[in-house]
Design a protein around this nucleic acid. Structure first.
Lengths: 151, 151
DNA sequence: ATATAAATTTAAGCCCGCTTAACTAAAAAG
DNA sequence: CTTTTTAGTTAAGCGGGCTTAAATTTATAT
């Protein structure tokens, strides 16, 4: 029991530091691309989850289909994503990152990784091994959690 | 060397999962409060770093002083933050969270913590202990890193 | 076959946040 | 003590993103 409390404390402290830092970097990055937050988020989601349709966009971002359409339009015009007909339903569209889009978001990720690389350098070999193991466990559990529940 | 590569891989995987999840939650929360992203960010920074002046706001968010003033205005009118004269410089203002504001952002944090609590329940006692230790190391190093460098 | 529903787009208009410009007040510099 | 610089506010106007409303095309239901 007390172990669980300690754990909660540790992870919350880490979240606070990590979030605080990441959010700053992320906001700056979004601004540097000249794209809106939703546009960057959309591209990240395409990268993370793969292709999706228009209606999914409007649900995820909680905007009207019209707004989603306009959002996507600009990314298509900038050559970051590609909008093609869904072969299974010709009313629907399938959105995908282009090479250009993929490159852009990977750059953004690199930027965020940089901070962590600095962190890495401050650790001893033993600490790295220990943390690496710990994070792998968390990633596995988190991924499972993401997959299983309906919501 | 190879150990460092493994570490980098582990932490990046974790970041991806964590960021993806956190960003969603954070965006929803910001929307649910009816406040803009900048407004929520501002309150979080006040909570995290403590009081600050107007000019700091406009620098951090990269907006004009005019914009900062308007941003703050709405939060003051909603009773989330308090704007008082700086006793050391009567031109300047000191911004602080009110109890109401503090409560709001703590609620938001709780919401984000909830996911992690789910995670916690999926872990064994040993795993928790191990992860807890690992995260404490990272938090310490990250905090040091935040403090020392000029930029 | 016809009617209805679903997926998306286009156009018009609104709102909100940002900027520029002009202003007030206090501190620092000369 | 005047001048300049610094901190912040106020007002007017612009632009971007979102919404509603209407149209288009394809799928589904009766």
């Amino acid at each position: 029991m007390t172990n669980s409390v300690q754990f909660t404390k540790s992870i919350r402290s880490w979240m606070d530091v990590f979030m605080h830092r990441s959010m700053r970097g992320w906001g700056r990055y979004a601004k540097s691309t000249g794209l809106s937050i939703h546009q960057v988020s959309l591209m990240m989601q395409l990268n993370y989850r793969g292709a999706c349709g228009m209606s999914e966009i409007s649900e995820r971002f909680n905007v009207t289909p019209a707004a989603a359409s306009q959002l996507v339009d600009k990314l298509v015009q900038s050559g970051y994503i590609q909008r093609e007909e869904d072969p299974n339903d010709r009313r629907a569209k399938l959105l995908n990152l282009t090479d250009r889009g993929r490159k852009l978001i990977h750059q953004g990720m690199e930027e965020r990784y940089r901070w962590v690389d600095e962190l890495t350098q401050k650790l001893t070999e033993e600490e790295r091994a220990q943390i690496s193991e710990a994070l792998d466990i968390m990633t596995r559990v988190a991924t499972d959690l993401e997959a299983e529940p309906v919501q």
